[in-house]
Nucleic acid binder design. Sequence first.
RNA 1: GCGAUCGUAGCUCAGUUGGUUAGAGCGCCGGUUUGUGGUACCGGAGGUCGCGGGUUCGAACCCCGUCGAUCGCCCCA
Length: 436
Amino acid sequence: MSKNTPQAIRGTQDIFGADAEAFAFVVETFERVRKLYRFRRVEMPVFEKTEVFSRAIGETTDVVSKEMYSFEDRGGESLTLRPEFTAGIARAFLTNGWQQHAPLKVATHGPLFRYERPQKGRYRQFHQIDAEIIGAAEPQADVELLAMADQVIRELGIQGVTLHLNTLGDGETRSAWRAALIDYFGVVKGELSEDSQERLEKNPLRILDSKDPRDRKFVADAPKIDTFLSDEAQAFFEAVTNGLDAAGVKWVRAESLVRGLDYYRHTAFEFIPDEGSEAASKLGSQSTILGGGRYDGLMESLGGAPTPAVGWAAGIERLAMLVGGPEVSFDPTPVLAVIPDSPSMRAEADRIAAHLRSLSSGDYYIWSAFKQHGRKLADKAKNDGVDAILFVRDVPDVDDRLHLTNVSAPSEEAMREMFYVLARLPAPYRALSGEN
RNA sequence: GCGAUCGUAGCUCAGUUGGUUAGAGCGCCGGUUUGUGGUACCGGAGGUCGCGGGUUCGAACCCCGUCGAUCGCCCCA
């Protein structure tokens, strides 16, 4: 690499090859499932006014206080590259009058930006798939949203991942619980880890899932959310769990699952790889694959009318790490290479390739390359994983012009399939010779 | 923001206690090969050893700094 070539920005990725295939597979699967559940597609701006995020997510959260890519535009306005989807979608809901469509089910995917130290499964520009139900207070909305998340993960073929579920109660429940936790941990503050002493000020709920053994011994006897739950909040959570059972979505209760952002109420959840599973080892130290919850207070923080809503987002890179390695093929469609035997047959081969492409209904793909011919090109095609090769020979007899060789599946059936493809060619290409 | 490990060809990596002209495989380019299915054969190009400084007769190798990568902490998807 020349020292004169600029390098990529830290924490960004140039996704290529098998990784890019896995990425596309995740997005395509999500699109299919989202249509199945009739979530409407939305496209959102990649940047917003900074206050959209600072007001919605909460000034004291790590995301807002130290992880945002914020900058002034030429008019002196503070803008921010979106660190998540929910705040922007909430803003759009309010500014575009989407109330008229409530309850509104929307889905999107795209890049997000967080100024963090990159590591496995975590980047400064990363990508999420996202689903939201806005304007529905019913626990059935939570259930459907979670069933959809569960289906996405299953259709991706991901094993060993479990839904961890908790309730944070309503606003009053959450503040009462928070106050009790501050009291409880405040007494033993000196014995807590340095991180948790700080968390006591900023986000006491987070002490509950600290990994530090100094904190862990106090966590077991910490005040439980269930004691503070109002009757309504309790009933809501039960309705959600009953609905999940009815829908056949497996879940476990995770009492210490709190989510980092201020806007969560009631349902909070994460899909997490099971301890010791293959999925867990593929993810490195990242554990959450998909996370979300109910955010009934968010619209008000943006100056809108109280509007109940639930949503989730999942990291595409993290999902892609779990859907298989280079050996996994995401598309079984057969690939036919069209190869000129000699330079003189180049134009003829190109014509045949063009014919075959225009005749394809997506049941096969045509491979071609722009230089070389004969054996050398055939070797390249095989390396690229083509299933069959059609040689275009320079012979006087048109009937001998096309020669088919099956590469990947030596079965007669596969060979017949390829002959069937070639049968669609117009004259004078009808005849051909080949093996099997 | 903190810590650990690592930067040699396009890629993956060798490179002895510091010692002549820094190597291999793959890929790439050219030639031969008319093709049985990720193993044909011959030849070739390609590297200021991340960058800067220092030690030394001599540095890819030792020291300092810097940038980057990887992994972990924090936090999150």
